[in-house]
Design a protein around this nucleic acid. Structure first.
Lengths: 226, 226, 226, 226
DNA sequence: CATGAATGAGGCTTCATTCAT
DNA sequence: GATGAATGAAGCCTCATTCAT
């Protein structure tokens, strides 16, 4: 399965790029190096000029692919959620027990990526780190509305919907499945970040899977039937 | 009580400013207009120059008070959490039932501010909007570590700790009180933001207090004794 | 006559293009869309890239035809003056009275084009608008001298000369026929432009042919014998 | 009189600058060097960077004074017309004969500036050259309307109006005084330009004041009573 | 011949900051 | 302590152009 997954090519909504970076060597270089550079210096400090220097091309080359750096972040985020959705579908496909299914899904959403698939030009471990620390910024912008029309959050929404449906499969009467799952997804990001920088906001102990345990407990307790 | 509260002056950690903005007319103008301006144009586009134009002073004046715009955001955030902590302490002080106490606390954390106290120069309604949409950015920065040393997240942590303690008062065996409460605080922000811009990620219905209900249900279910 | 005129093909001096745009579909598309685009966005903002987008070809294709955008403007201007000269010759060919002849010529120079011939790919109405607002820019350049050597102003000069000769036919002693006619041609452009944007510089009344009347009066009064 | 004139300070509409260049040494340097630089390389090639190099300051300094290069051209043009208006008023003030008055005015409008007053930082000879070759560009722009609202053409219009009134003093029945005078002003510019670069469009002979003579003859013949 | 890709150079503008008064 | 002036550095972006296919 793993191999199959990595051979697939993830299609990102055409609106986020001017020229598909996945269709040329340069384009793939732009993507893979964006990830590394954003991780290194943070999205705020990330510029086309610096990226250009990293890939040995002038900024203007990158402008052929993306309108601005915001769009690159969108590209990466969409790619990430698409990839996660794919993994989710495959990981849960043959599980019959609804509880087991949801359990697997939550783990997938919450646990950090630890191994790069090494097949594509995209380093998923680093990308995961970026999504954790930067994705919030991509929707807390004055122009989310604009972007939303662009359909760029479609994948993200669909992913949340998939897991929400698993919740409903367990308790059809639960009123807030989407809220719960989006809280889990974003909360997990935050807790990972806090664990690293503001540990007293969490209760994370070294070597224990506290974040995973907490969110699983939280989800199952929250949705229980009365 | 209200009057008492509004007369109090909130002390913000000295490290975030060069000169206390609360000690001069100019300084207070800087603060009150920062809030309005950030709300208007977003923190990314917020600059000392624009703020200067709004208050009719050159940028250099603002530099007397704050080292950079990041510090202003910190000031506002700290002020906000201090204010919230104050309200929390007063709202829960005489409640005996631990459940009732926690319930009150959660509501306070989760519900949006609807009325400006009109006593101070700070518009709490707008400030609340800013904290919702911008505060995440203030800790998802490469230099949280730095800032943390500055003790600027102290208030925030203390607030989380206070409510975590209320959780432990109900269930002393619950392993993740801090994680739970920080998830609630941040999650509530996110859900409010989503409700406005990406509603399909939430299950919010007009006129209903869905966000409050969801988080209360989530907290109490999660911490229940087995 | 009309039909005859529209079937004729206007030969533009070879020096302004690299490959004659009138010899291929693409080339004609380049010309007709240049006119529309310059009219839309102004010559300053007109670029090969934008033109390329309009005709669905990359910039490089346009480079096959023209060295730079300046040359396109020259092409259009030359085409325009050639076309006007043609119309002038035909309109005045069988008029015997010198006064009547000059009168007809002035009208032709001064009145705006109102109907597109619809035979060629060139929209004369729009082209006339462009020449009015942009042609001045084409000779107020540091390199008019250069362009002049290229013989590109030949047609324009010949047109002015033709009408100047009509002036001399009426008053052989008039000292400044070329000055008078070039003032008429350019002045008419200017007055049309002013009438639209700075009306207080003109004395144009709606529905009246004031510009035509003024220039005819001016010419005939100026050249009268003492 | 000359001395008196040169001591006066010409007030340019505040809307065209951010900070009045006439109030600081740097500002005056910006103005005087703009004139020289535009004359040298043409307005198209004129940039804040190049101007900055000429005055030994970075571009950013110039941005404190002017929003963009277009505004500098406007400033210069307005200054020029104001200066001309002043000269016009003083040159014609005590002339009783209406014909003599108009004659003097036309000469002033039409003859090139030959001597720099040497009192102000502005070189009027060079400025005159610029206005001749560049001013047309300043109203043949997509945004004349915008600029017009800004009242920047006010002086120009007033100047034209003044001379138009002199025309009407001679022949109150003449229908097109403004058209005539604006044609003279712009026509003179054009003829000077043509004389230099496209002489066959004019009938200018070396050493003779043909342009002046032509326009005087044109004006007086055109406005004669029937 | 048309095209797609790439690029260097430069334009325009804003920032954050310093300094002298 | 507030202000006005000035500035260097950098960001973002577009142009005009070339080259290989």
């Amino acid at each position: 399965m793993e191999e199959f997954l990595t051979q697939m090519r993830i299609q990102v909504n055409k609106r986020v790029f001017l020229k598909d970076p996945d269709t040329s060597e340069k384009g793939r270089k732009i993507i893979s190096n964006s990830i590394l550079l954003i991780d290194e210096i943070g999205f705020e400090n990330f510029t086309f000029k610096k990226l250009g220097m990293k890939i040995g091309s002038p900024e203007s080359t990158i402008y052929r692919y993306f309108e601005n750096k915001h769009k690159i972040l969108l590209y990466l985020t969409i790619w990430y959620w698409s990839w996660l959705e794919y993994r989710l579908v495959f990981s849960t496909i043959n599980i019959n027990s609804p509880e087991e299914k949801l359990n697997t899904a939550i783990k997938l959403l919450v646990e950090p990526i630890k191994e790069d698939s090494d097949f594509s030009h995209i380093n998923e471990v680093v990308l995961n780190r970026i999504v954790i620390s930067e994705s919030a910024k991509s929707y807390f912008t004055k122009d989310v509305g604009e972007d939303n029309k662009d359909g760029v959050f479609k994948v993200y929404k669909r992913l949340v919907q998939r897991v929400s449906d698993m919740v409903l499969a367990i308790n059809p009467d639960f009123e807030y499945p989407n809220m719960l799952i989006s809280t889990v997804v974003e909360g997990a990001h935050q807790q990972r970040h806090f664990a690293k920088y503001l540990p007293s906001l969490t209760n994370v102990r070294k070597g224990k899977k506290d974040i995973t345990n907490f969110f699983i407990q939280m989800v199952f307790n929250t949705i229980q039937k009365k």
